[in-house]
């Protein structure tokens, strides 16, 4: 091993950070790195979601599996997920996934006794484990509000089913750790995108040959508001370079106006603007940090498997065949 290395040292600048939203710049790296991180956040950062539902009583209009599916999609607070075990490789229980290290139990018991329709929401899911509580998203904030009816819609919880008089829903749900690759319900990301940073160069000399009317026409041809005209100097200025959707509309417009080369747009292929939105299961910043950890674990796993020959056994006959009986 020599000591020369070919890594780069990316830089990060945060633009905006909220619990469920994050926007930052990642510079001095390559699309493969940005894309690896995006893919890991989307499909491999673990969260907790309901995976097993035992229905005791269901006289609602929705059938059992329909309700089980809806329960699975409810985001649960998953700060614990990185420390939890996957129930398939939990040692404490033999894979039945019912121990405290790999599962969280919820109960739901609702019956409609009034003439009004009763909304069963994620707030009706009660975690049985009080030691390491995991809640449906928004469960804790609900305490700040009193009655359900007057609450703002976002505080009313996630609707599971509606019950009419006499209908009842009683069930036990087991939530487990999982990843988005296995089922999208475990994906912590509502959206995660990155874009190249566009660099916009206006050919000022050519721009000056345009009349104010023409300038206006050209500025308005952009479907996203990227340019504007300075009221004082009557010059075209870039107001929001990142609004550019790489649609080429303004370039086509310039060509159509007989002014090719009016603007030159290049994308900086080593700078990325990331936008992450969380489902609420994890904080947006934690999602990204966990993704880095997981990518490192993946790299480590490959490196370790290189040092152990016994992995060849996993390939069985195929491995022996491919190694050509070496």
């Amino acid at each position: 091993m020599d000591n020369v290395s070919y890594q780069r040292f990316p830089t990060v600048r945060i633009r905006e950070i909220k619990d469920d939203f994050l926007k930052f710049e990642l510079r001095n790296t390559d699309a493969s790195m940005a894309n690896a991180l995006r893919r890991v956040v989307l499909a491999e950062v673990p969260t907790i979601a309901i995976d097993l539902v035992e229905i005791e009583m269901n006289s609602s209009v929705l059938n059992d599996e329909f309700i089980a599916h809806r329960l699975g999609l409810i985001p649960l607070t998953s700060e614990r997920a990185m420390d939890m075990k996957f129930s398939r490789d939990c040692d404490a229980c033999d894979g039945d996934g019912k121990c405290e290290f790999c599962s969280i139990e919820f109960t739901l018991n609702v019956k409609c006794t009034s003439d009004q329709t009763l909304d069963v929401t994620s707030h009706d899911l009660v975690p049985s484990d009080q030691q390491y509580p995991v809640y449906p998203v928004g469960f804790m904030e609900r305490a700040e509000y009193g009655g359900y009816e007057e609450d703002p819609p976002e505080q009313r919880g996630i609707l599971i089913v509606k019950l009419r008089r006499g209908q009842e829903l009683k069930l036990r749900a087991i939530a487990r750790k999982g990843i988005g690759k296995d089922h999208a319900k475990w994906s912590p990301a509502a959206t995660i995108t990155f874009q190249y940073e566009p660099e916009i160069h206006i050919n000022e000399a050519l721009m000056e040959t345009l009349t104010l009317e023409e300038k206006k026409e050209w500025v308005d041809s952009c479907p996203t508001k990227m340019f504007d005209i300075d009221a004082n100097t009557e010059q075209v200025v870039v107001v929001d370079a990142e609004a550019y959707a790489y649609d080429d509309e303004i370039i086509k417009k310039a060509d159509a106006m007989g002014k090719p080369g009016l603007v030159n747009i290049i994308s900086r292929e080593d700078s990325f603007i990331f936008t992450i939105e969380s489902t609420g299961a994890l904080k947006a910043a934690d999602m990204f940090l966990n993704a880095i950890e997981i990518l490192k674990m993946k790299l480590d796993a490959v490196r370790l498997s290189m040092e152990t020959e016994e992995n060849d056994d996993q390939f069985g006959e195929l491995g022996a065949h491919m190694r050509g009986g070496l």
Binding site: M1, D2, S5, Y6, Q7, R8, F9, P10, T11, V12, R13, I14, I17, F24, L26, T29, M33, L37, A285, F288, L289, I292, E293, L295, K296, L299, D300, V302, R303, M306
Partner: peptide
């Protein structure tokens, strides 16, 4: 094999670096 090992190591260092710069940037922003 050695070249691949070095590449894995380099990527690990890069991940570590992004992690560090990211946490710094978050703190600075706050």
């Amino acid at each position: 094999k050695d070249v691949l090992k070095d590449a894995l190591q380099d990527l690990m260092v890069m991940c570590q670096h992004i992690r560090k710069t990211f946490t710094n940037a978050v703190d600075q922003h706050k």
